[in-house]
């Protein structure tokens, strides 16, 4: 899987029209530079060989050098990625918690007032672009109510501690979580509805269990079997959405770095960043699979 990612990124990058060295160097391209880069990158060699050289370098931690920042790609990416991880991780936890909770309530109170309100909120949540939601939140909570800072990760003067980070984190994390929470809530609702009709739920009730135990102990446990894989997908959603949210809130994460790098045509940085984030995503999904296997004894690992 990890190899697959590198193959795909490599193939996409080889789509670059024209001479890649010129494309990479952009405005800096003097004939000498182009020739030097071609040699450095081994672009004069066949593609398969080039791929393995690139792969070998990455395995040694060498992701190349960003020309626009003039520092090793891996340093920049690692620094930015930790900021993204804080944001996306928080959002992921938020979307999982609120999404599942909303889905459960919605299913248990099917057709009730709570269900209708949640269904309506979910519809809005999955229809509103996260970047627009972020802008509206800035207008309302930062400008009008002055509850939270407009943007950034730390205050420029003073800040730097955890409280400051949290203060900055609330709005972007919520904006980012909204869409994913909607999707999770929808799925949790239908998974719960499906499970609640099962015979073993009737058995649980026939035993005289408290309804809370029936819902959370028996129904939700089974529903999690179909919710967890979707949580894995939502992690991808959250990472993706982070690209927009980081731009809106000026969060110094890897998403904004990628966008800047693309606009500056700093392709080494893009390449390294994409591989790095995708690898993290794959590892996360492996963790999800493990969690799934732990939850469901019927899956043989």
């Amino acid at each position: 899987m990890l190899l697959g990612i590198t193959v795909i990124v490599f193939l996409i990058m080889s789509l670059i029209p024209g001479d890649p060295a010129t494309a990479i160097l952009g405005a800096y391209a003097t004939p000498e530079n182009v020739e030097k880069l071609n040699r450095d990158l081994g672009l004069d060699r066949p593609m398969v060989e080039r791929y393995f050289i690139w792969l070998g370098n990455m395995l040694q931690g060498d992701f190349g050098r960003s020309f626009s920042l003039n520092r090793p790609v891996i340093d920049e990416v690692a620094e930015r990625f930790s900021a993204t991880l804080v944001l996306a991780g928080t959002s992921f936890v938020l979307c999982a918690l609120f999404g599942i909770a909303a889905g459960v309530v919605s299913a248990v109170r099917q057709y009730g007032l709570a269900d209708r309100l949640i269904t309506f909120a979910v519809l809005i949540g999955i229809s509103v672009p996260s970047f627009f939601l972020g802008m509206i939140m800035i207008l309302f909570f930062a400008v009008r109510l002055r509850w939270f800072p407009v943007s950034g990760m730390y205050a420029i003067y003073g800040g730097g501690d955890l409280a400051d980070l949290l203060h900055h984190l609330v709005m972007p994390a919520v904006a980012l979580a909204a869409v994913a929470a909607g999707v999770v809530a929808r799925l949790s609702r239908s998974a719960m509805l499906e499970v609640l009709r099962q015979d073993y739920i009737r058995t649980a009730r026939a035993k005289g269990l408290r309804e809370r135990r029936v819902i959370f102990g028996h129904a939700l446990r089974s529903a999690m079997v179909s919710i967890i894989p979707v949580l894995g997908l939502q992690a991808g959603f959250v990472l993706s959405g982070a690209v927009y949210i980081e731009t809106v809130f000026q969060w110094p994460g890897v998403g904004r770095m990628l966008v800047d790098a693309i606009l500056k045509r700093d392709l080494m940085l893009v390449q390294g960043g994409v591989v790095f984030v995708a690898a993290a995503y794959v590892l996360f999904n492996i963790a999800v699979d493990v969690a799934q296997a732990l939850l469901d004894p019927r899956i043989k690992t």
């Binding site: 990472l239 994409v274 995503y281 794959v282």
Partner: peptide, 9 residues
């Protein structure tokens, strides 16, 4: 296996 926006980017 990719987060979709990453691929698009």
């Amino acid at each position: 296996g990719f987060p979709y926006v990453l691929l698009a980017l």
